[in-house]
Design a binder for these strands. Structure first.
Lengths: 209, 209
DNA sequence: ATTAAAATGTTGCAATTGCAACAATACAAT
DNA sequence: ATTGTATTGTTGCAATTGCAACATTTTAAT
């Protein structure tokens, strides 16, 4: 995945960010910052620390949707934060630089540095669109088994590995696939009993093909 | 929805496109152009004419996924064209200008015109991400009824209208919702019989709330 | 080490769904 | 107007699923 400051050194990073009329914010650990970042034109760069994007699913459970570290960026649109049941919480003391599209695009000191930055930003958008399309391809399958197999196949194609580590919890995984956790659990057991996969905690090993 | 040449007049449009080291292509009506546009870095601007993006669903039916007119743009990533069962077909004699990210981003004549163009491009990406998130929100609902109601509610919020015109066919609509067409038909009938909606051909009228 | 809390696993059951097979209707071409 | 084709509607049925209720295991806290 492209990082926003890829090929940009620290000195230039701050030079760029300063020029965008951006503001610096500091938050303590475990603070909800959704209200600061919800504006649809906002883009937030994580300078120090990390945040998690969580979502309350229909059962009312707060599930981790994503975890973002320093040098990563997020925005309302990228993570659908306008949706009522999302929240953004700092995982540690965190420093953000917050700006918006207009200020980034209007930046006048056009140079190599800026070009690299804009290119990285496009690539991040591209990656996001790709991953959303990917998820749609998975959840568009009609049965739980086919959703799982589509997920496995995609993982295999991308990582060339038969070992899949479930990030976060099985509940979050089920939410990603838009299915009931216990029904997924049942189907994983079926796949295991039929010899297609092996399950060791949060590692699933593909035994087929 | 943002158009790529919004706030850019025709003269400047061509000036911009020429400067991106872009090539012009002409296609006859009803030509498959997927092979010309499939490269993931490609961006295609429709100068004249129109194209449809189609997708062969699991039943083997080719469904219209989207229809794009002149002054619109598309690209492999934006429409997931790498996926094996997509195709792009011209609906009339069509002229395209095809370029790629690198050439757009590296463009050196930085000026107001270019700024507007880049801003429009970002907005289109933003719109795309929004609409993908929207679709995921809809298809993540667990029952056909809830998918339909979520779609209706979103439509109502966005258009402030109780009349919904189904674009393309009911089959395409079912594909968008990732459900079986006949099961959807049954559920629409239920909603009708229970007095929630009225159906007149491809117009659905919301009677609730 | 003990206890509490959170996460994961299991299972019966009713509701929902996909699928197949077919009927009815709308649309297009001559 | 007639014929053929594509789209939409209907329905029975078996398979799948969500849900609830509960058991077991893992993790975290003291």
């Amino acid at each position: 995945m492209t990082k926003i400051f890829e090929n940009i050194d620290a000195k230039n990073k701050y030079k760029l960010l300063r020029s965008f009329r951006a503001d610096t914010y500091n938050f303590k650990k475990n603070t909800s910052i959704i209200n600061t970042v919800i504006d649809p034109n906002t883009i937030c760069f994580i300078i120090k620390g990390s945040v998690k994007i969580i979502r309350n699913n229909e059962n009312g459970n707060a599930n981790i949707f994503d975890k973002l570290d320093d040098n990563e960026l997020f925005g309302s649109t990228l993570y659908n934060l306008n949706d009522i049941d999302y929240d953004v919480i700092t995982l540690e003391d965190t420093e953000l630089i917050i700006t918006n599209y207009n200020d980034i695009v209007k930046y006048q000191g056009k140079n190599k540095l800026y070009t690299v930055f804009i290119k990285n930003l496009f690539m991040i958008y591209n990656d996001k669109i790709k991953s959303l399309n990917e998820r749609i391809n998975i959840i568009s399958k009609k049965t739980i088994r086919n959703k799982l197999l589509e997920f496995f196949n995609l993982h295999f194609k991308k990582n060339n590995s038969r070992n899949i580590y479930i990030p976060f919890s099985y509940q979050s995984f089920a939410d990603y696939l838009c299915i009931d956790r216990t029904a997924m659990s049942r189907e994983l057991k079926n796949l295991k009993d039929e010899g297609f996969i092996k399950i060791t905690g949060k590692r699933i090993t593909l035994l087929y093909k």
